[in-house]
Write a protein that binds this DNA or RNA. Structure first.
Lengths: 234, 234
DNA sequence: TATTCAGTTAAGTGTAGACATAAATGTTTA
DNA sequence: TAAACATTTATGTCTACACTTAACTGAATA
């Protein structure tokens, strides 16, 4: 019944293991045979089995502990992966044409909520930018962004009339940390106007905060046009 | 300047490479030295360097092609990972107490939109369930679910008065495929009532479709209480 | 009885070397 | 000139083995 053919690659072994898990041959919470035993069964080596099991653990199928052994996770808490593309790429992928438009750019004192959120001392100057991203001339995303010039002084000389702050930032800032939240917000007057939707309508919203070596660089609120869905497959 | 100490683990090598990328020593789009050269520089072996670079490629820092070499990706399209926990676990993690309540359970013919979405032939029987998840007795999530008994006959005998269909399904069904979407929807009368929010308010919504070996098993719509945010760090 | 400690075991990691494979480049041939 | 073929080379993968480290087990001790 068991495979047992020669020269199995770590990929083949992964497949067999997944099959056995899915067919309850190895039930949730149960212990797998040791790497050495599996290597023998598959007429492979421990190194190869190790790679297979290690990757399956990363993918959320297994839990591994030294000495304790390898265990099948009962809750398939498999991890959904979303890649976080630039808007321009996201739009380009659908085949639509991308257009950018700057709405407003001002330098002002950080509002209290922003200072609190980014743990800034009060009254710091921040660059405030609002802009729009269009797909085939239909509103796609309304972006409201704050950038901390203290963390990246060149931003004060940057030109955001032709392309968005995101494009500029990924070129300039090798960010080290990132927090992303997704939520549903209610369209206020400005959002409604720019996204061409009725005020009060639900808007899918992403909020990104980026740090560079511990110092906050930018906070962006991204409001997506009505009908937007963020989808992933596993 | 360069590290060059002995006995670097693949972890150390990863760190050095990331540092160099972030300090623009290896600029975006540029080619890294070959594995062999790096192995020499770090007085390590190609196998170890390989593991470091392979993992960094998985994490989205590098792009690797045979013969072409290893290249620094310019857009740090790093991947956000969300784990998809059971509601009960999600609530338990905040320290709140979890309570479940069944709202409705009926067997009916699949509505057209559902049949279309799951690629069912028309008029199929489906089990329709609506239920609530509470955290500390406050509404947390309103769940609307359809299950295809054809794919999992035992579901007709299952008892959903004490615990939710999700709990039952993860025990029974080793799902093989999963599609998750997130969106913002407008609270209709039922949603508003159950989540204790004004009708018309924006509601963060997840939609999960699960397949077992190609056959659709269940579709769930999960409506989160106002204020919910899905957050992740990178 | 409870605690500490040593032994054992399974996974984690590193080294060395071989062969496989894909892609870029150079060379020959139609 | 262009297509077909061969060569080169960097990554991909596998094997075999050694050593490290975490965690369980059970025996010795307080």
């Amino acid at each position: 019944m068991a495979a047992a053919r020669e020269n199995m690659s770590y990929r083949d072994i992964k497949q067999v293991v997944v099959d056995r898990i899915q067919n309850r041959i190895w039930a949730p919470d149960s212990l797998l045979p040791s790497e050495t035993e599996l290597a023998e069964e598959f007429s492979s080596t421990r190194t190869t089995v190790n790679r297979a099991l290690r990757e399956l653990a990363e993918e959320g199928y297994l839990e591994r502990k030294r000495k304790a052994g390898t265990r099948v996770l009962n809750a398939p808490v498999r991890k959904a992966q979303f890649s976080i593309p630039l808007v321009r790429d996201e739009i380009a992928e659908t085949g639509a044409s991308y257009r950018y438009s700057l709405v407003e750019q001002t330098l002002l004192a950080a509002p209290d909520w922003l200072a609190a959120r980014l743990e800034l001392t009060q009254g710091r100057q921040v660059l405030h930018i609002r802009c729009m991203h269009y797909a085939d001339n239909a509103p796609f995303q309304y972006e409201v962004r704050w950038i901390i010039p203290e963390s990246i002084p060149e931003v004060l000389e940057a030109d955001f009339t032709q392309s968005g702050p995101n494009d500029w930032l990924v070129q300039k800032v090798p960010f080290t940390n990132l927090e992303i939240s997704f939520m549903a917000t209610k369209a206020d007057q400005a959002i409604a106007e720019f996204l061409d939707a009725p005020a009060g309508d639900p808007v899918f919203t992403a909020e990104r905060i980026t740090w560079l070596r511990g110092a906050p660089v930018t906070l962006a609120k991204l409001y997506f046009a009505p009908g937007y869905r963020m989808t992933t497959h596993i």
